[in-house]
Design a protein around this nucleic acid. Structure first.
Lengths: 240, 240
DNA sequence: CGGTTGCTTGAGATCCATCAATAGGAGTGG
DNA sequence: CCACTCCTATTGATGGATCTCAAGCAACCG
């Protein structure tokens, strides 16, 4: 079985067998965590870099007024932060959204891997630059897209990201978040997430059965949400 | 005269004289640009990394619906992007907000500088991590702060950032943006920026004379805006 | 079964956008 | 020095988007 981490990185570089073996070795040993558990508390330096094998997680921030904002959403194959850190840099809280299996990758190991192979060094940068592009895209969403557009955009992005790690079934995938989580991610109230979802359903763009999302009209949803997937670099555009 | 770039980086590492000379050499030669000019068009790979000597700039994104979102704001001393890029990564548009003097730093030169000195490599990462923290903080603002809180937070951040490069005068500094720019930065309409500003003024938190901002009640403004400056690493916390 | 969690819907309030108009300041040309 | 224009700031009025409060429902789980 190929790790989702490896599957994802193949979109970013042509990895040799050696490269993939080195990268796979970073993914061991693994730990497990339950759902809705803090892996790393807010304000601590990062002791290691979590690499997700299975499950979803997020960086979040709790404001003094009690509101929560999810800063980044992490899926299987994701490194939960930049591959390099410095002393005195504190982290946002990292929490699981679902039960999760992850590898606590040591920064030393990752640095050594990058030093050993130019391709690995590049693909780690590729991953960092894509993660950073997703954050910037969310700034655009939060600032200038309506609630329904934000939600549609998010559903498009998730489909694309899950496709990169082989976790979709055609136009369907399992949405592991609650609507409250989506609200904290998109800067909306739970109630309004629900209404926006209803709007997308009524427009025939998506449908839901339980936690299973199906994008019924991909072009329509992309157009409605102003979604352009280039920033995710899922097309192997390295070769084009 | 010490470059703002150097002044800023001193907050991130103890640089030797040699380090500073190497970093200063990156800042030459320089170019000038007028106000409201695109330095780099959207969707192009980055030909070089602009380093601002004087003036303000921003990354922005124009949506198909005509709305604009400013993604990052850049001040004197700022590198307008991560110090490493990869082929096929396209950029957001980079535009000046004011007349600007900048150095088009070549990625090769910056890579060489990082390879030559561990301190330089670290301080470039420091800069990248701080820039990334500012983007995440804006996600929090856009998602979970009210208009006035966002504005106050922004004014606090600007004061801190300008302080790091010596461009403040006590509690005052020159705000180089129009209210329309602030709106695009904070996800608000121009009109509402104006009203939020009025609210901050009436609360005795800030005052304005022309483009000159004065923070009359720093603690009050910080508290009101839920601003905690740790993410900017302006305190030389590397030593603490 | 009862308790908990998440989803759904309604009603009313609030925040913010939009439209429209005015005013001030800086530059420009006569 | 004045008239003109453009850009920015300011304010009012109105409507729309979203939040909050509240209630009911469904699924799951001890």
């Amino acid at each position: 079985m190929v790790l989702p981490f490896i599957r994802k990185l193949r979109h970013g570089a042509r990895l040799t067998g050696d490269d993939e073996r080195v990268l796979s070795s970073l993914a061991e040993p693994t730990r497990s965590a339950g759902p809705r558990v803090d892996i790393i508390a807010e304000g601590r330096p990062l002791p290691f870099l979590p690499l997700i094998i299975e499950g979803w997680a997020c960086h979040y921030r709790l404001l003094e007024n009690g509101k929560r904002q999810i800063i980044s959403l992490f899926l299987p194959g994701d490194l939960c932060g930049p591959f390099r850190t410095l002393p005195h840099f504190k982290n946002h809280a990292l929490a699981t959204l679902t039960p999760m299996v992850f590898a606590p990758v040591s920064f030393d190991a990752i640095t050594a891997a990058a030093a050993a192979s130019r391709e690995i060094e590049e693909v780690l940068w590729w991953d960092l630059l894509v993660a950073s592009a997703m954050e910037r895209e969310r700034i655009v969403s939060l600032g200038r897209r309506t609630a329904s557009e934000r939600l549609g955009h998010c559903l498009c992005e998730l489909h694309c990201r899950l496709r990169m790690v082989g976790l979709i079934d055609g136009l369907s995938y399992d949405l592991a978040t609650t609507q409250a989580d989506l609200g904290d991610l998109l800067g909306l109230s739970t109630v309004h997430v629900n209404r926006s979802l209803r709007e997308l359903k009524r427009a025939g763009l998506v449908s839901l059965r339980g936690r299973r999302v199906t994008i019924d009209d991909p072009d329509g949803l992309r157009h409605f949400s102003l979604f352009e997937e280039g920033y995710l670099h899922a097309d192997g555009s390295r070769s084009g």
